[in-house]
């Protein structure tokens, strides 16, 4: 076990982008995340290309969710995040950043569908109202547009005033996606958005994400390797708080350079 670890920790293969050819939407530099004294992320620096889907895979406890949640500082009150998170040339992990404004541009959808106990309409209008948008016509328009983008407008257009909690799990999750894109973020972070859903809902969510890719940079944590290979352009493999391999999805699944990645993908551990 110990031997195995020493052998594999040295082995890393992290792709970087040529800034001339690729537009970087988000990247981390020297990021470390601590829960109390224990380090949850020690080496995890990645770059994320604009208008692509990047999947983060890895076994439970590998730090991929922690990494994702650090990107829009949802870990602020839970963990200590050190290092830089670069977005549009700014380090958004600094104290000068208005966190609430930043989260408007870097939205997040969680593992468990978490609609508010409000109507479908109000779930989407919530964030807009908080930003002072009160005109009914504007709200109506954005609610419809968001629900259309999340591919659920036709199912719910007559029930907008019904409680969001009455929706099925898959619909709730798409409502959460609609809610997140209603405020037009740049980047959408998704933390295992389909892990609590049945296969049909999962494939609908995946279709929605592929649709959204045209306008959003998407970073998704997933346990499901088929899902990663189906929808993502790039994949990063995490283990024990480190990103060990980061490459184009096709490469990582057919020709992994790191032994541990190969073991994980072929189901030998994890």
């Amino acid at each position: 076990m110990a031997d195995n670890n020493t052998m594999t920790t040295d082995q890393r293969n992290i792709m970087t982008f040529d800034p001339q050819a690729h537009e970087i939407a988000l990247s981390t530099e020297d990021l470390h995340v601590f829960y109390g004294n224990s380090e949850a992320i020690s080496e995890g620096d990645l770059q994320f290309e604009r208008y692509k889907i990047t999947a983060l895979i890895g076994p439970s406890g590998s730090g991929k969710s922690t990494y994702l949640r650090s990107l829009n500082r949802m870990n602020d009150r839970i963990a200590t995040v050190k290092g830089k998170i670069m977005y549009r040339g700014l380090d958004i992990n600094s104290n000068d950043i208005d966190v609430y404004e930043m989260r408007r541009h870097i939205g997040m959808v969680f593992q468990r569908p978490n609609p508010f106990a409000k109507s479908i309409y109000e779930n989407i209008a919530f964030a807009l109202r908080q930003r002072g948008m009160n005109k009914k016509a504007d709200l109506d328009e954005i609610v419809e547009r968001s629900l259309r983008q999340a591919a659920m407008w036709d199912q719910v257009k007559d029930d907008l005033n019904k409680s969001a909690l009455a929706l099925s799990g898959g619909q709730q999750q798409r409502l959460c996606i609609a809610r997140a894109i209603a405020i037009k973020p740049d980047i959408l972070l998704l933390d295992e958005p389909a892990s609590a859903l049945d296969p049909v809902s999962t494939s609908q969510i995946e279709d929605t994400l592929l649709e959204l890719k045209q306008n959003y940079t998407i970073i998704i944590v997933t346990h499901n390797m088929q899902q990663a290979s189906r929808i993502s352009d790039y994949t990063a493999f995490f283990n024990l708080g480190k990103a060990l391999e980061y490459a184009e999805t096709g490469d990582i699944f057919t020709n992994p350079k790191v032994d541990l990645t190969n073991d994980y993908i072929s189901g030998n551990f994890g």
Binding site: Y100, M102, R103, G107, M108, F110, N114, P115, F126, R131
Partner: peptide, 14 residues
């Protein structure tokens, strides 16, 4: 539930 707070914060609410 904690996820109510998370959902709201993730939408940029203060």
């Amino acid at each position: 539930p904690r996820y109510y707070r998370e959902a709201s914060l993730a939408l940029g609410a203060t």
